[in-house]
Amino acid sequence: MNSENMILMQDIVKRFFIGCPNELQVLDHIGLDVRAGEFVSIVGESGSGKSTLMNIIGALDRPTEGEYILDGVDMGTLDDNKLSDIRNAKVGFVFQTFNLVPRTTALKNVELPMLYAGVSRTKRTARAKELLRLVGMEERMTHMPNELSGGQKQRVAIARAMANDPAIILADEPTGALDSVTGRLVMDIFHSLHKESGKTIVLITHSQELAEETERIISLKDGRITGVRKGSN
């Protein structure tokens, strides 16, 4: 589906209840829209609510209040099973700590989203190999995660995020655990996914430098959007 807006958020509030009187408001009336095919970054200090926002965007979590439409689907009306389907079909997650399934080969990790989508064995193996080749990991297909370096793990994770050809890729500080050289490599993969595959990408980052490479930079502070500007290049 190619609706005008990939993400449409209105007055999103997220509160955590830690004990009876302690109500922690992490997101405070967030309004956000991201066009299909856009590459945006979210910046902000630690604890400002970036990951919480990403979890809501990625259908891992539900907002306490507000309205959220992802790729034309109103998320407020969906049950857990439907949210699983949305995550499986429309969202590709890339995490700071890679989150590969342990004791499972790179190939099997990339196959996982397709497995849950019910793709046949031969098809998913073929596609997983193709994706690993795209991120330059075809030599390491049979390796276990603990046999891979950080940069290699992140490339496998990106291949896995692409498995079901999602509408949107959500990357939460994907270069945070990498050195600048491998971080650069990972960034280049995102750029090519954006340009060549036309993916919508939301990148959360600490690095001002990397944020400048994206089309739009959204600043978050204490759960509120404090600024939106275009990337400098």
């Binding site: 891992l60 997650f93 989203p113 849950y116």
Partner: peptide, 16 residues
Amino acid sequence: TKEIGIRKALGAKNAA
């Protein structure tokens, strides 16, 4: 637990 979280993030339903 973490593995279960990852699987769910990738779209595994409760039944799976």
